[in-house]
């Protein structure tokens, strides 16, 4: 096989890995949107907040230390301990569940039945609020997140694939972090599917996503389900935040990845979990491949806009997304 072809394959593999992250963020959107009709603009900030919290807990940071010091004239920053990664992840999950409960109880419970645009505006407010709180709690400096995931190119993959090409092919370069991220994402999605299909709470969640009135009549508490989906979205955000943070550092630009989830949703449809996953992978592969093949001709940096143009094309030619049913106007 020619080296050029094999490097193309490498680009596709790396695109798939990037797509996994887009898919994860999009999945968080879909979970909340299906169950409550809320388009959660804050999903990306939730990923950032989760990652910040994880780093803060691991490093034993005192939350709100800035305010505490300013108010009491103290000078505390650290508890002086560090927390092991797994325990810190569990604690962060608890924080995200508390956050889910608070978001529902203090905001969306009072907005039930409002227009979608009002709910959307509320999530924009939530996004900025959460960004501010994250800043206040843990500070605004860029943090490195190291939970012990191996980084750098996998020699194993490189050596294994070396023989595929000729002289000038050195094997696939695939980041170990990406491999771990993909495995974690697959486990997460599999877990979510088992949960949704086979547990009582999962059934109730699907019921609420389908019809609120009917769900109530079979004894499902809507409030419980809404806290549940916000918690699940928080969990998905945590995974996305950890993966992205480990790769590029935990910083406020992390919340911008949420914007990439928008074209993913245009492709996959706003209510389809398989759509979010496939849409994420297509965008990931598409933008890497496009940059590899067309990028050099147009001066590069196509990854900034490729996804949006693709989404635009979809909006024009297939507005229901990949998996939505054809929209036929009733007359």
């Amino acid at each position: 096989m020619s080296a050029e072809f094999l490097y193309g394959v490498e680009v596709i593999i790396n695109g798939l890995m990037a797509g996994v992250l887009y898919a994860l963020v999009a999945l968080g959107f879909v979970l909340i949107f299906k169950a409550s009709g809320i388009f959660n603009y804050a999903q990306g900030v939730m990923a950032l907040f989760a990652a910040l919290t994880l780093v803060g807990i691991m490093e034993g940071q005192v939350p709100f230390s800035h305010i505490i010091n300013a108010t009491f004239g103290t000078d505390v920053h650290n508890f002086g301990w560090t927390v092991p990664a797994l325990l810190a992840i569990a604690l962060t999950l608890v924080v995200m569940i508390i956050f889910a409960w608070m978001v529902h109880t203090f905001v969306f419970k009072h907005l039930v039945g409002q227009e979608p645009i009002i709910l959307f505006m509320a999530t924009i407010g939530l996004a900025y609020f959460l960004e501010g709180i994250g800043d206040l709690m843990w500070g605004s400096d860029i943090k490195t997140l190291d939970i012990g995931i191996p980084q750098g190119g996998s020699m194993w993959v490189e050596n294994l694939s070396k023989h595929l090409g000729g002289e000038d092919f050195y094997g696939f370069f695939i980041d170990k972090l990406d491999i771990v991220a993909t495995i974690v994402a697959i486990v997460l999605v599999a877990g979510l599917i088992v949960f949704a299909q086979y547990t009582k709470q999962g059934r109730a969640m699907r019921a609420v996503a389908d019809d609120h009135q009917a769900a109530l009549s079979v004894g499902i508490s809507l409030n419980f389900i809404w806290v549940l989906v916000w918690s699940l979205a928080g969990m998905v955000a945590l995974v996305a935040g950890v993966m992205w943070g480990a790769k590029s550092g935990v910083q406020f630009s992390l919340s911008l990845i949420a914007l990439k989830a928008l074209p993913v949703l245009m492709l996959g449809g706003f209510t389809s979990i398989p759509g979010a996953i496939v849409g994420g992978l297509i965008i990931g592969v598409g933008e890497k491949l496009f940059e590899y093949m067309i990028g050099p001709m147009v001066g590069g940096a196509t990854e900034n806009w490729f996804a949006y143009v693709l989404a635009l094309l979809f909006l024009v030619f297939r507005p229901q997304g990949l998996f939505g049913e054809r929209i036929i106007e009733r007359v």
């Binding site: 877990g191 088992v194 949960f195 086979y198 547990t199 009582k200 709470q201 059934r203 109730a204 699907r206 019921a207 996503a209 389908d210 019809d211 009135q213 009917a214 769900a215 009549s217 079979v218 004894g219 499902i220």
Partner: peptide, 28 residues
């Protein structure tokens, strides 16, 4: 008021939700 996206069987199974008692972890 039915769950249009679910099968007949799944719809009827939701009627059993009030009778399901096992905890979440046990189910998974």
């Amino acid at each position: 008021a039915l769950f249009d996206g679910m099968s007949v069987l799944d719809n009827i199974m939701t009627g059993r939700l009030t009778h399901m008692k096992t905890g979440l972890l046990a189910q998974m």
